[in-house]
Amino acid sequence: MSAKMGANRTEESDMAKFLLLMNYGPSATCDTPMDRWAPEDIAAHITYQQDLGAELAGNGELVDAQGLSGPELAKRVTATGTGAPVVTDGPFPESKELLAGYWLVDTTPERALEIAAKASAAPGPNGVPLGQPIEVRELMSAPAAPDL
């Protein structure tokens, strides 16, 4: 674990909020898009994700978790500074990584990594763990407002 992870936390608590990010795309064991999986494999994957969410909620660690629509439904908005923003419909072939979903957890840095490993092990086709990379990012805290 990086020495910088958790640098914004106070000394009295190791707890912090972490965003665990899962991207669309091939994983360590699967390069087949989910829409081409067998229905029972999709059901097993979703059940696994629901069970993980229930476990985290039961532990008091879950703040939020959501799956996102596919990249074909994404929109990219860019302010032009000179009128209406530019809205581009997805998918975006130039993008190497597109977010598939996330978990927002309130826990210790070590536990955030454990949760990420569990999320990475979600089953894919034929029940084989996907090995999907999960990016773990600590939420930054805003600096305290100055006393006036």
Rank of each mutant, 00 (worst) to 15 (best):
M1Y: 13
M1Q: 11
M5V: 12
N8Q: 00
R9A: 08
E11N: 12
E12C: 03
S13C: 03
D14R: 14
D14W: 12
M15R: 14
F18W: 06
L20C: 01
L20M: 00
L21W: 14
N23T: 10
Y24L: 12
G25S: 02
G25M: 03
P26E: 15
S27H: 08
A28G: 03
A28I: 09
T29A: 11
T29L: 06
C30W: 14
D31W: 13
T32P: 08
T32S: 07
P33N: 02
P33F: 05
D35F: 15
W37E: 05
A38M: 09
I42C: 03
I42V: 14
A44G: 06
A44Q: 12
A44T: 03
A44L: 13
I46C: 10
I46F: 13
T47R: 14
D51S: 09
L52C: 11
L52I: 15
G53P: 01
G53R: 11
G53F: 00
E55I: 10
L56K: 04
L56W: 03
L56C: 11
A57F: 09
G60I: 02
E61A: 06
E61G: 04
E61N: 01
D64M: 13
D64P: 00
A65I: 10
Q66I: 02
Q66P: 02
S69T: 15
S69I: 14
S69H: 12
P71I: 09
E72I: 05
E72M: 06
A74D: 14
A74F: 12
A74I: 07
A74M: 07
K75T: 12
K75C: 00
K75W: 03
K75L: 13
V77C: 01
V77S: 06
T80S: 14
G81S: 12
T82M: 12
G83H: 02
A84G: 04
P85E: 01
V86I: 15
T88S: 00
D89Y: 04
G90P: 07
G90C: 08
P91L: 02
F92V: 03
F92G: 06
P93W: 01
E94G: 00
E94L: 00
K96T: 13
K96C: 07
L99I: 13
G101Y: 01
Y102R: 01
W103L: 05
W103D: 00
V105W: 10
T107W: 07
R111F: 02
L113M: 12
E114K: 11
A116Q: 07
S120V: 02
A122H: 12
A122G: 10
A122F: 08
A122E: 10
P123Y: 13
P123T: 06
P123L: 06
G124P: 04
L130H: 12
Q132C: 02
P133E: 03
P133W: 08
P133A: 08
P133F: 13
I134Q: 01
I134E: 04
I134S: 03
V136Y: 12
V136C: 09
L139K: 02
A142Q: 11
A142P: 10
A142T: 15
P143I: 01
P143H: 05
P146Q: 10
L148H: 07
